[in-house]
Simulated scan of single mutants.
Amino acid sequence: MQVDPQITYRNMEPSAHVEERIHERIAKLEEFHGRITSCRVTVEAPHQRGQKGEIYKISIDVEVPGGHVVVNREPGKNHAHEDVLVAIRDAFNAAQRQLEDHVRKTGGIHVKDHPPKTHGKVTDKFVDEAYGFIDAADGRRFFFRADSVNGQGWNDMEIGSQVHFTEMDGEMGLHAVSVTVI
């Protein structure tokens, strides 16, 4: 998972036991669908006056490449959900069913993640050797070759040109590939 799971409690104190169970269920979802990017879980114990027991409401928001799964288990009159662990079980079962539907609808095809583009400025260009250097906005310095520049960008590129590129780690340090002149 790219982002640590977020667990929120409403109208109740956080519980280590409940949190442990939620993490176990998230791990099971990840076994089924290994490309979950984020998961947010809300455990809510609504105020109920004059009724016996609290019926818990569980909300789960799971993001996967090419899709989004949202489970809002309204407590209704299901008194089995007076046990927070039963409510969690039922909500995560519903989330898994929705993930299964998502995989079926996409034909089992997972959308490829594209690495984020980094912004920078060309600081050195050695025409005869066909390479140069880019300083990223965060101060890091990247080596690049002329054949890493998209299209005719190498010919149009000057010192100070603004570029977008994909970062790579090389044997000699940071490299820029798929360099595009802005």
Rank of each mutant, 00 (worst) to 15 (best):
T37E: 03
E129R: 06
M168Y: 04
R73N: 12
F165C: 09
F142L: 09
I26E: 04
F165D: 15
Q96R: 14
M168I: 04
M12V: 13
Q162F: 10
L174D: 08
H102I: 00
A130C: 13
M1R: 12
I159V: 09
I26R: 01
Q48P: 01
V69W: 02
Q48I: 06
A130V: 04
T118H: 07
K112R: 06
Q152P: 01
V177I: 14
Q96E: 15
Y131C: 01
T106V: 03
V149W: 04
C39N: 02
M172V: 12
D90I: 07
M168T: 09
K112H: 02
E19S: 15
I22H: 12
F143D: 02
P115R: 00
A91N: 01
H114M: 06
S161L: 06
G66R: 05
G151S: 07
Q98H: 13
G160A: 08
R73E: 14
K117H: 07
N78I: 11
I88S: 00
A146C: 00
A146H: 02
R89M: 04
N72C: 10
F144G: 06
A94L: 10
Q152V: 11
R145E: 10
E63N: 13
F133K: 01
V64I: 13
H81R: 14
G53W: 05
I88Q: 00
Q162G: 10
I55E: 07
R10I: 07
T42R: 02
E13V: 08
G120A: 07
M1V: 12
N93F: 07
F165W: 06
V3R: 13
E30C: 08
R25N: 12
G66Q: 03
F32W: 08
V111I: 14
M172G: 05
V71W: 02
D124N: 15
V127W: 05
H33T: 08
K112A: 07
T166L: 11
V64E: 09
P65M: 12
V177C: 10
V86H: 11
G53D: 02
R141F: 05
Y56Q: 03
M168A: 13
M168C: 08
L99C: 00
F143V: 02
I109E: 06
D61I: 04
G50Q: 00
V18I: 14
R21V: 09
V163N: 15
A146D: 04
G151D: 15
I55Y: 04
I26Q: 00
E82Q: 15
L174G: 10
E82F: 05
T42E: 15
P75F: 13
V3Y: 13
T123S: 11
N72S: 08
G34L: 01
P5C: 06
R97E: 09
V163K: 05
D113K: 11
A136E: 02
K121H: 04
Q2N: 15
A94R: 07
E30Y: 05
H17Y: 09
T118Y: 10
E171F: 14
H114C: 08
F32S: 09
L99P: 00
E82I: 07
R104G: 01
E30M: 11
T166M: 13
Q152D: 11
V149Y: 06
G53R: 12
P14F: 03
D156A: 13
F143A: 04
H79E: 02
E44D: 15
Y56W: 07
M168W: 05
I22D: 06
L85M: 14
E167D: 13
V111W: 06
E24F: 08
T42I: 01
D124R: 15
R141S: 14
N72M: 10
H164N: 14
